[in-house]
Write a protein that binds this DNA or RNA. Structure first.
Lengths: 145, 145
DNA sequence: AATGCAAATGCAAATCGTTTGCAACTAAGA
DNA sequence: TCTTAGTTGCAAACGATTTGCATTTGCATT
C-alpha cells in the first residue's frame, strides 16, 4: 500500500498563530507574515524563497528573522526541515503524518509518498542490528519519464 | 533478505593508484598519503579526520588538498561522499555494491546494510509516480538497544 | 490609553564546511 | 636533464546559517 500527494495538495493547515500563542510566543508582524506565507503555499521553499515572498509583503523583514522563525517553528513542531542533496534546507508544514520524498532532479519539485511496507522493513533491519530507529531519511532522486 | 557489515569489515580495496594513473592523474606525495589512509581505515571519516591522519605522515599537507583529492576521487568514482545529518561530509571507498546506512546517533558510527526488498519497493513507487530513480538516500538514525 | 520590560527585530559580523585564485613547486614524458 | 602542465599550500572567498548588540515592539499591567 502506498499513498502519495504532489504540491497541489489541499490538506487543512493547523492554526499556527494559536499554536504559538499557546506556547507563550509573541505574534509579531514578521511572524504573522511568515506564517501567512507558509499557509498559502504548498511547496517546499527554502529560507531565501520565504524571505523573497515576505519582502513583498513587508520590505523591512530580514533574512535573520526568517531563519529565526523557521527554527522556532521547527522547535515547536510546526514545521519540518529537510536538507535535500546539494541545496539549502527546505521547509514544509508538519501537518499530516510521516512521509518520504521523491525529488525531481531537473526541477527540484518535491513529491511526497509513504510506504508502510518500507517502514516495516526498516524497523526489521534496525532491530536485527540491535538498534531502535529514532528517525530516518528516505529520499528518491529521480527524473520524469 | 538483508545483508550488513560494520566498520570492521575486511573487503579487498581497489588499486586506487593504478586507477588514477590510468585516468591520467599524477600520483603526488599528498595523494599517495591520502590514498594510504583511505586504504588502511574502514570507517567513514570526514575531511578533517583524514587531514588529521595525513598530517601525522606529512605535516606539510593542507586541508585544501584533502578536499581537492576527495573531490577528485569522487569524480573518478573511487569514493562516495555522504552528507549525513548535521555534520560534514563523510567518505567511504566505493568498492562494493550499493548499500544504505544506519547511523548511531550517540557515537556517529556507521553501519552499512542492504535490502533488496526495499530497493524494489522504491522502484515501484517511483514508477507509479512516473519517475525513474537516478539515485537515492536511505539513512536510519538509531540508538543501540 | 499610557507604562514597563522581556522578547523580538534588523543589521553586521561571525561561524562552519568547503571551494578557489594565485604564485611557487613538482611529476613525469621528451 | 629539461619542460611544462598539473598540483600544491596559503589565504581569501564562499554560501548557508547563526549570533551579538543596540533598538524596537508586543502585550500584560496599570
Amino acid at each position: 500500500m502506498m499513498a502519495s500527494k504532489t504540491e497541489s495538495g489541499s490538506s487543512a493547515r493547523p492554526d499556527y498563530e494559536g499554536l504559538l500563542r499557546n506556547a507563550g510566543v509573541r505574534i509579531t508582524r514578521p511572524r504573522r507574515i511568515i506564517l501567512k506565507i507558509l499557509a498559502e503555499h504548498d511547496d517546499h521553499p527554502d529560507a531565501m524563497a520565504i524571505f523573497r515572498r515576505a519582502v513583498r509583503l513587508d520590505d523591512s523583514i530580514s533574512l535573520s528573522t526568517v531563519y529565526r522563525t523557521m527554527k522556532l517553528l521547527e522547535d515547536k513542531g510546526a514545521i519540518q526541515r529537510h536538507a535535500f542533496e546539494g541545496g539549502p534546507s527546505r521547509f514544509e508544514p508538519a501537518d499530516g503524518e510521516h512521509h518520504d520524498h521523491l525529488i525531481d532532479i531537473d526541477t527540484g519539485q518535491v513529491i511526497e509518498f509513504h510506504s508502510e511496507r518500507i517502514e516495516q522493513l526498516q524497523d526489521e533491519i534496525a532491530k536485527s542490528l540491535g538498534y531502535e530507529i529514532i528517525h530516518h531519511r528516505l529520499e528518491l532522486y529521480g527524473r520524469k519519464k
